[in-house]
Design a binder for these strands. Structure first.
Lengths: 248, 248
DNA sequence: CGTCAATGGTCCGGTTTCAGTCCATTGACC
DNA sequence: GGTCAATGGACTGAAACCGGACCATTGACG
């Protein structure tokens, strides 16, 4: 067993990914994060009801007590409201705050090296998802679902554009049928979310993005895997470049 | 707030990815899993020493007590041995069990729908990683590192081929510099690992795989992103097809 | 031959998390 | 107007987990 010394000299950038944290916070914190994910990514829109506590606790594999603690902190933050009784429940009251360019520079900078990581992670996952979605035989229901998400996005009021955009991109991930892929995309978008929200939306940018969205849907529905990948890449590259610009 | 009813009818396949478990097991179990990941994927080879408990507990963000419990269970399973004193430590004693084709059919079948998920997840991550690696400007050290992993693999004895293969693929992920990407690849490989290990290695298959590995390295080092993606895809598609064959 | 720094081994008090139970409230429906 | 099923709210004892301190062992090195 004398190989030891020879190998663990490099241990730093080797074990880097493998010895990553098993827990990034306590259960309570991660539960709050997960609920915010659903809300901020637009899976739960304003006014939507969360699943009942007992069921949700089961899905998240967390005790009801802990889940309730998480919900309570969202109540304090004004993100949700709860009502008792049958036909009661917990309802989303979160509204996206208006973009503040001042935030952006700060947020980008204290994200530091994590930004490059998040950007390439996202690029890989989303271009891959688009390609896989295009390759799959989609049911008519799925096709309709994708077109619906696109329509929602095109009719969006400015203040809900961001969430519907996330929702649209998540929909593509769901079409692949790969749970893990969708989860990864949700996670990566969540990491970039504060940054993206801080970018002011110009009319011109929205028009350009919308055109790319339409192309993505067209290529996916046409089964054009290569095309879907390419235009998704182009689409993501635009915002990535914008964010990188603030690193200077 | 009457939108509620209209939306949560579809909640099943919508919240599917977003309401995934916050915890897949207790801390102890996930810690064991993480250590096995390092061992089974060949990041820690036979005879290697684990980082000291205090440091490792810190990296995994787990209490030393819990980490020690995990290590104890690996000791019972015969995967590691510990020695006290300065220059002591915990050392890997795990040897890959010989492949058993009988296991394969069983393992594939009770993985069920999870198999398709894991396979497309892997495909997206690894082809993406290869492409990104090819795009990056690599340092001479990184280029050497990649070539080393390839050389290790080509000189591998049959019983260590699997681990060095994982090690090689992980090396490509590391070249992208994206922590999350490497973590995802490690995770997906871990899910498929038992299946892959159960496949008997034929001389002919190894030769073919080796040629593909060389092509992957060549294209990456040459900065040929398209080529790297294509040959990685081809490489992965081979084993994927083989596994799918057992689903019948 | 003794020192001592680094490592695994042990223990304990405090906190978080869990599973289960029971209570309180509400509104659709009879 | 009363019923009652579904929902949030509250409590409790047990288990898991943490963090920190202290002990035991080892071998390189002076």
């Amino acid at each position: 067993m004398d190989l030891a010394g020879a190998r663990d000299a490099r241990m730093d950038w080797r074990g880097g990914a493998i010895f990553r944290p098993v827990r990034t916070g306590n259960t309570f914190e991660e539960t709050v994060e997960r609920l915010l994910e659903a809300i901020k990514l637009g899976v739960l829109a304003y006014g939507d009801r969360l699943p009942p506590e007992r069921e949700l606790a089961g899905r998240l594999n967390v005790s009801r007590e802990t889940l309730r603690e998480a919900i309570r902190s969202l109540q304090l933050a004004g993100c949700v409201e709860s009502r008792r009784g049958r036909y009661g429940g917990t309802f989303v009251t979160y509204r996206l705050p208006p973009p503040d360019p001042g935030d952006l520079r700060r947020a980008v900078q204290d994200m530091g090296a994590g930004l490059e990581d998040a950007l390439t992670y996202r690029m890989v996952l989303e271009t891959g998802a688009a390609e896989q979605a295009a390759r799959r035989p989609l049911t008519e229901e799925q096709r309709a679902y994708l077109r619906e998400r696109l329509a929602d996005l095109e009719n969006a009021a400015p203040e809900e554009y961001r969430q519907l955009d996330s929702r649209f991109h998540l929909a593509i991930a769901e079409l692949t049928g790969s749970h893990s892929l969708a989860a990864g995309i949700a996670e990566s978008r969540m990491r970039l979310n504060d940054l993206l929200n801080a970018i002011p939306m110009l009319e011109r940018n929205i028009d350009h993005a919308s055109e790319q969205h339409r192309t993505m849907v067209d290529t996916i529905l046409a089964g054009d895997a290569e095309g879907a990948r390419r235009c998704t890449e182009e689409h993501l590259e635009a915002t990535a470049a914008l964010l990188r610009g603030f690193l200077g």
